[in-house]
């Protein structure tokens, strides 16, 4: 068996779109909303109410009104999520802290990606290192799987939810998910209040083309599948360490 010819695919697509257009000829009853909300119709469907994206901001969980507030909310959320967060003054202190962790936990090898800040921290670790994004080479997934920890940067940090936004630009897709420990190295000024702010940051950062993966990481991997009891480290990292510099 082989993949379907393109014409057959297009025919199926046209058939479905025709059904969609036919179905939508009947106008929808008004939405079941309770409170008054500001709305404006889109160009193609002037009859439909649409809420400006920023309108929901005051209704969602708070992300703080000042950098200090956001920092407080972020670290509080991380604690609730059972991620570890340490704040250090500069890169040297970050390197010293991580080296201490490596010694204490007996790490044999740590994976990292190409980034001047991360390189400076990883260089002084008392263990082997594996760079996942050497020029012209693909990441060796077997090698990465055998690493004790993955150290990555991030696009930004979100106070509102305690999330870390990483993309495939920070060491691809595997670095932040395959090793047992994920270490995030970030500057304090990378904290943004809300999820919508984080989306604005990545749009700004990657004008034209977004990285192929953007992942909001909110705490270490977890499951509640067995009797709804929380267990950390289901498939992804059991531990999430966030080093805040500055």
């Amino acid at each position: 068996m082989n993949s379907r010819p393109q014409e057959a695919n297009e025919a199926a697509g046209q058939a479905i779109l025709a059904r969609v257009r036919e179905a939508l000829r009947l106008p929808a009853p008004p939405p079941h909303i309770r409170s008054q909300t500001p709305t404006a119709g889109p160009a193609a469907h002037p009859g439909l109410a649409i809420l400006p994206a920023e309108a929901s901001r005051p209704w969602l969980p708070d992300g703080g009104d000042s950098p200090a507030e956001s920092l407080g909310i972020f670290t509080e959320n991380l604690a609730t999520l059972r991620a570890e967060c340490v704040r250090v003054a500069d890169m040297n202190a970050a390197a010293a802290w991580l080296a201490g962790q490596a010694r204490q936990r007996g790490w044999q090898r740590v994976a990292f990606h190409d980034d001047p800040l991360i390189a400076s921290v990883v260089e002084v670790l008392p263990c082997d290192r594996y760079r996942v994004d050497s020029p012209g080479e693909s990441c060796d997934k077997t090698m990465l799987e055998a690493c004790d920890a993955g150290v990555s940067g991030c696009e930004c940090l979100i106070a509102q939810t305690g999330s870390i936004l990483v993309s495939s630009n920070q060491g691809g897709r595997g670095l932040s998910i395959l090793p047992h420990v994920h270490v995030v190295l970030a500057r304090v000024d990378q904290i943004v209040p809300m999820l919508s702010d984080a989306l604005a940051v990545v749009r700004q950062q990657h004008q034209g083309r977004l990285p192929s993966m953007l992942s909001f990481i909110t705490g270490p991997s977890r499951t509640g599948d067995i009797e709804r009891i929380l267990v950390l480290g289901a498939h992804g990292p059991k531990e999430l360490l966030v080093i805040l510099v500055g």
């Binding site: 495939s168 192929s212 993966m213 992942s215 909110t218 991997s221 977890r222």
Partner: peptide, 13 residues
């Protein structure tokens, strides 16, 4: 507050 991983994929590598 958020599910642990919310990931957006825009295509292959």
């Amino acid at each position: 507050p958020m599910t642990c991983y919310n990931t957006l994929y825009g295509g292959p590598r």
